[in-house]
Design a protein around this nucleic acid. Sequence first.
DNA 1: CTGAAAGCGCTAACAG
DNA 2: CTGTTAGCGCTTTCAG
Lengths: 342, 342
Amino acid sequence: MKNVTIKDIAKVAGVSYATVSRALSGSSEIGAETRERVLRICREMGYTTNYVARSMVMRRTKLIGLIVANIDNPFMSELAYHIEIRAREQGYNLMLCNSSHDLELERQVFTLLVGRQVDGIILVPANSDSYENLKPYISKVPTVFMSENLRDLPESYISVDNYRGTRMGTEYLHALGHRDILYFGRRKNSVTHQLRAEGYIDACRELNMEPGFCNSGFSFSSIQTGYQLARHLFQKPLRQSAIFAATDSLALGVMEAAEEAGIRIPEDLSLIGFDNIMYSGLPRINLTTVEQPKKTMASMAVDVLLEKIGDASSGYSHRILMPSLVERGTCRRVGAQAKSNE
Amino acid sequence: MKNVTIKDIAKVAGVSYATVSRALSGSSEIGAETRERVLRICREMGYTTNYVARSMVMRRTKLIGLIVANIDNPFMSELAYHIEIRAREQGYNLMLCNSSHDLELERQVFTLLVGRQVDGIILVPANSDSYENLKPYISKVPTVFMSENLRDLPESYISVDNYRGTRMGTEYLHALGHRDILYFGRRKNSVTHQLRAEGYIDACRELNMEPGFCNSGFSFSSIQTGYQLARHLFQKPLRQSAIFAATDSLALGVMEAAEEAGIRIPEDLSLIGFDNIMYSGLPRINLTTVEQPKKTMASMAVDVLLEKIGDASSGYSHRILMPSLVERGTCRRVGAQAKSNE
DNA sequence: CTGAAAGCGCTAACAG
DNA sequence: CTGTTAGCGCTTTCAG
């Protein structure tokens, strides 16, 4: 199991181990024949660089810490997939941690990652308190936030334009003839969610509709949450002809409850989500939704982070990407009179 | 950005830095008052252990490499989730890599992880050639394979009893009155898939049914693959009354194609899958399937790996877990005459 | 162009 | 109980 080191190969090559290091690093200050010979011996002896030792002296690890609330969540695992690939392209590897939506745990893994000497951290925060929660530690390592919008906080983040997203969705529903739309799953402790709600509200105002809400409090979005909430909601007949769910997961929960309550989608009720997770494109689900450009967000997060790693004195940047509407099968055109009937 | 080291705190505490190390490691050979004082100073100065340096001398990193074909796949991200949590409980962190179902890439990231000095590797292989592919490198680091069954190869793996799984499913379908079942998506380069096919075949034999196949060649399972294959299949009227899909993803593809072809599930066709990915429990999907106990598999993989790390001379172990049937809504009871009609 | 030597931050003998 | 010292494997001046 003993790995062959630079010294071992120096010995058989009959050179100093500094020379081996030079050959390996492609340094110019080394003779071509020596380089070839050393490299050949490396290959023959199956040498592999010890990155731990290298990191020690180079004072960088080429490691990025990735903290997600829950990798077993389609939105985050899709991000993680693209982040890993992009990072590796750039010579970085990923150290993955789940915060399990827990601020305490999030802080714990953050400091742990710092102790591991990661060169930077990409974070999909547990909630809007994450920034405050991590503030004392963030100065220790280049960090970029993802998905959660930090408004004008002095830290880099990548986010979609959530406000525009819900505006677009609301306008789409309006164009389809809906005049009474329920915003479902408004969440408290998330700026992202607040912005989504604001986009919806403003669109309603401009289109002369009355905003209406079904709040989810502090619980983060999941199919479960959506289901519970919707089940309660469907106990009384619903005035609205459409539901705008704050996330696709929530929308999926709505679907489940609707099924149970005998409410047909889209015949009786139109439904639109936000995120465009993979589930949503499934046959029978076919959820109309507002898409977040996850692959772009992922590469951008890596790029912004590497920039920051490269130049510690650089400032911070906020990148807001445009969402887009994905029309599928859960929204139905309703007549002008649909509003008064429903 | 300069981190405070053991030396810095030794200086202000007025002790040697070995003493600081002792205080930190909770060594017994140190005075209680000294320990307290040192620890207090550590806290005050915001000291954090440099794990890279520690790894260097301890010759272990407390890092586990996790290679999955594609983290953006519900089966694997669920495994990853549980693996990460279990590993962290045991003081290990995860280095995550995607092989993207590519043997060449898989080898690349494997050696990369070895160079990173991970203490062990958990691998969800790209296909059945992974073992051969990685053979020269596996000796360098404790490794456990997951999900793919290695038969009697001398390497540790965790797998579900795939043979029993399809047997169970087939018997279930038979008990529901089905007498002609199509096995869908039989794959070539995977022992796991071969075992699933065998379980189906043997069950058919014993129950006096004629096995029938729709093969997927070498392409790994995905909704796409299932859809393409099923679309082709549904061009001619189907003799069978039920389809056993080799994986849930494939089954989802079947659903999509069935929808398009106007075939109702389960009214016209019963469908059963394998894996029980999260998608399958979704409203409207509600896929009957054979479940793999993913959380158990994940903890077990970590435990087996740590055992191996702890005792390099220990042998290998094959752990085969029992699958279970999850009855949902895609299989329908058919009359005794259903067979002759369909 | 190549060798010698210092040192990254930490642990672990070995002395005292 | 505490200090001294020698590395872990590698990169990087600094001499030659």
